[in-house]
Design a protein around this nucleic acid. Structure first.
Lengths: 199, 199
DNA sequence: GGATTGGGTCAGTGACGTTGACACATTTTT
DNA sequence: AAAAATGTGTCAACGTCACTGACCCAATCC
């Protein structure tokens, strides 16, 4: 069982260079494994719920980021997800048709479709959230606060510059408190009611 | 300030329990974001290399785990990857045909196809590994040794029981040290030469 | 009034996963 | 020796999620 930590070998005080190299190799192999298994099992719980509703992980991501930033524009959402308009359309359109997501025209720029969750959408998002929450909280509890902080730092480091910027923006505008589940007031809020039709 | 339904309060730095709950909510939202962005960008570098060879992430996973445990059986690999035989076949067969992976009959049980990397396969796997290594090392350096340890603890916690067992087994049998890149000796090693044909 | 921008959509493609059913060789059990 | 179980491969059909290219409409900008 290899001792963890970072740099220098904890046990074998042998040949410096070779051993260091070896440790770094195994260290990184371990990181690959951890990310593969960890991410897979992290998403497994939510996937299960989604499957019953004939939705997929892509739908979840939309619910998550729209819930995190109600009133987001389609363009901004595309930027966050890093996918194409067509790919988003395939998951967003059904979500709108099935009443999970609401579109409203922007007040300043009426070309925009501002997205927010309906009560139904919020309910589902919360259900998915709670499922993952249990899972993550277990891991957090087992690992302890210091480890959690370290986890965050490393994960942030694994993100590219672009993603870091997006995450910062997400953190600046935290999700508004629940209570008025409908399209409430968000920056440059909706003109009046819903969208008048798909056009 | 609108009343909340089931959601946590937004401002109130007050009452312990309530505030703690709020922190936990944002804490977990952050974890979701970190995992999404982090995992995506972690895999991006290798994906780029693979795309040029008309291979995908699934091929990489096979190269990774076969490289990690040369002489692994098809069945064990299926267990680790958590996919079906058919899905594995679609990526494994091309890897064999294109000379990245070698099949050899098991010595004890000649039904088994023991998998190992050819020199070509090792070269590609190493190239992919190095790409991710740079990325992860950067994150590790930025975060520091304590954070790395925490990262590992949390990721381990995010894994299900099954995955933990598999990881343990992987760690027990570390990849044989480089130097003899070919199919060397692995437990219950190959009968003699390669597989006599697909039949 | 023309160009640009935000958004939607049609059509085709590819990667990666699924289930079900069947084939074949080898090993184990009876 | 016959029967059953195991390890692996394969055909066929399907679903999700991504991609590209092309084109349309409405609104805004210049």
């Amino acid at each position: 069982m290899p001792d963890t930590v970072d740099g220098p070998p904890t046990t074998a005080p042998v040949g410096a260079g070779r051993n260091l190299l070896f440790l770094r190799e195994e260290e990184l192999r371990l990181a690959q494994d951890l990310l593969f298994f960890g991410y897979r099992d992290f998403t497994a719980g939510a996937d299960q719920i989604l499957a019953e509703l004939d939705l997929g992980r892509a739908h979840h991501r939309v619910l998550h980021f729209v819930g995190r930033r109600p009133g987001i524009t389609v363009g901004d959402l595309l930027g966050i997800l890093g996918i194409t308009k067509q790919s988003l359309g395939r998951v967003l359109t059904p979500l709108i048709e099935q009443g999970y997501v609401l579109q409203s025209p922007g007040r300043n720029d009426r070309r925009q479709r501002l997205l927010s969750l309906t009560p139904k959408g919020e309910a589902l998002e919360r259900q998915l959230f709670e499922r993952q929450r249990e899972w993550v909280m277990r891991a957090y509890r087992e690992a302890g606060p210091v480890a959690v902080e370290g986890f965050r730092r490393v994960m942030r480091g694994l993100m590219g510059a672009e993603a870091r910027g997006q995450l910062e923006r997400l953190e600046q505008r935290p999700r508004p408190v629940a209570g008025r589940p409908h399209a409430a007031s968000f920056p440059g809020g909706p003109a009046a009611t819903d969208w008048p039709g798909t056009g």
